[in-house]
Design a protein around this nucleic acid. Structure first.
Length: 108
DNA sequence: ACCTTGACCACAA
DNA sequence: CTTGTGGCCAAGG
């Protein structure tokens, strides 16, 4: 199924994602939490359908892993915007975002 | 109202 | 590190 593009939940999620600054990240759960929800999976669904036109790479999984099946494209963005990463060597294909350092919380 | 679908999460083994 | 398990919840059918 597909969430309606005009549903409030979708609009809110997209607004939050667009508010994440360069080089910072939030987890799917963080985004849900801002909406007073625990629906991390729903945030994932929203991004899968409507995330193409926004900085989707700034939303990561709880362990700092980039969005499912988008590791390579996400990496190029992290490198260009200087997102803190954890990797064994600069050539390592495996990596994680340094969530502790890059975490972003929207202003109250 | 019930069932299913997920770019998820936490924790245990 | 890898599974497996149970939980989460909005929305389509």
């Amino acid at each position: 199924m597909r969430l309606a593009p005009d549903s409030p939940f979708v609009e809110h999620v997209l607004a939050i994602v667009e508010s994440i600054p360069r080089g910072r990240v939030m987890t799917y759960g963080d985004v849900a939490a801002v909406l007073g929800s625990r629906a991390a999976r729903v945030v994932g669904q929203v991004m899968s359908h409507y995330g193409a036109d926004m900085p989707w790479w700034r939303v990561v999984r709880s362990g700092g892993h980039p969005p499912f099946q988008h590791e390579a494209r996400a990496l190029t963005h992290y490198l260009t915007e200087g997102t803190p990463l954890l990797r064994r060597s600069p050539a390592d294909a495996h990596y994680r975002v340094d969530y502790a350092a890059a975490r972003w919380s929207p202003p109250a």
